[in-house]
Computed example of a mutant assay.
Amino acid sequence: MFDFHSIMPIFLSLFAGLSTVIGAFIVFFSKSGSKKLITFALSFSAGVMITISFTDLFPTAEETLSKNFGKFDGVLLALLFLIIGTLIAFLIDHFIPSEESKQLIDKNNTNLYRVGFVTMIALMLHNFPEGIATYVSGYQSTTLGISIALAIALHNIPEGVSIAMPIYYSTRSKSKAFKYTFLSGIAEPVGAILAFLFLKPYINDFILSIVFGIVAGIMLYISFEELIPESRVYGFNLLYIFSLILGICIIPISHIFL
């Protein structure tokens, strides 16, 4: 039960989740450089997620489903699960309130603390299924798990900023900002541990193909709806396009060595 193949994905999700805390340290110790780092992390992560979706997740789902149901039905089912993943991400965005914390800071909003708290809850709900996806992917393939964990870790950094910034500026307490950021990030390995305890016996090629199709849809939605638009907000257009292309290229390059 406690073999490397089963435990390694938990550590990958722990790495991805706790990278959220890096965002808190950026708020504490960085001024001008943080915007460039956020631009790079968001854009690079988008490139990685888009590439993983189209070169690993969706093709794997399509291939497995086609073997079980035939080529035509397999492709349609893979697309269906991708669309379901996109809808899941859309519904999370639609029903969980979120606001641009930097705009609220500029307006000296008195509800800044509440915004930071709500952001933490929203990202906890977002990170929990990411932990499950990281575990399932890493259980199927360590290489794929590492790629997904890296992409999630990079976009968790600015998520940490979005929590720590309103909490820190409203309370001037580094400990509170760190605690709330940590709570958001730890939801990721919690999801992975629950997947290890309860889902592992049911993981097979068919279940993996469903999960991969759904995760691909979620990643594509996050990339095009959140990461890419947000990475362009700060005006570092050359850094944005360079980071995006680097993220797209890094996954095929990693296939050579992993």
Rank of each mutant, 00 (worst) to 15 (best):
D3S: 11
D3F: 00
I7T: 00
M8H: 00
F11H: 04
S13K: 06
T20Y: 14
I22N: 01
F25E: 01
V27H: 00
K31E: 01
S34D: 14
L37F: 04
I38E: 08
S45R: 05
S45D: 03
M49L: 12
S53R: 01
L57W: 04
A61H: 00
F69K: 03
F72C: 15
A78G: 04
I83L: 08
T86Y: 12
L91M: 12
I96W: 02
I96T: 11
E99T: 14
E99D: 06
Q103A: 15
L104N: 14
D106Q: 15
K107A: 14
N108R: 09
N109Y: 11
N109H: 14
T110C: 13
T110F: 12
N111Y: 09
V118L: 13
A122W: 13
L123W: 11
P129Q: 05
A133E: 01
A133P: 00
Y135T: 01
V136D: 12
S137A: 13
G138Y: 05
G138M: 00
I146Y: 14
S147M: 10
L154K: 00
H155M: 01
H155P: 09
I157T: 04
G160D: 04
G160Q: 10
S162Q: 05
S162Y: 10
I163T: 08
A164Y: 01
A164F: 11
Y168S: 11
K176I: 09
K179N: 03
L183D: 09
S184H: 12
I186R: 04
E188N: 14
L194P: 12
F198G: 05
L199H: 12
P201K: 12
P201G: 11
Y202V: 10
I203D: 09
N204G: 09
D205C: 15
L208W: 12
F212M: 15
I214H: 10
I214W: 02
P229E: 13
R232I: 12
V233S: 08
V233G: 06
Y234G: 00
F236I: 06
L238H: 14
Y240R: 10
I241P: 05
I241N: 04
S243I: 05
L244M: 04
I251H: 12
I251E: 05
P252E: 02
I253N: 07
S254Q: 08
I256M: 07
I256N: 13
F257L: 14
F257V: 01
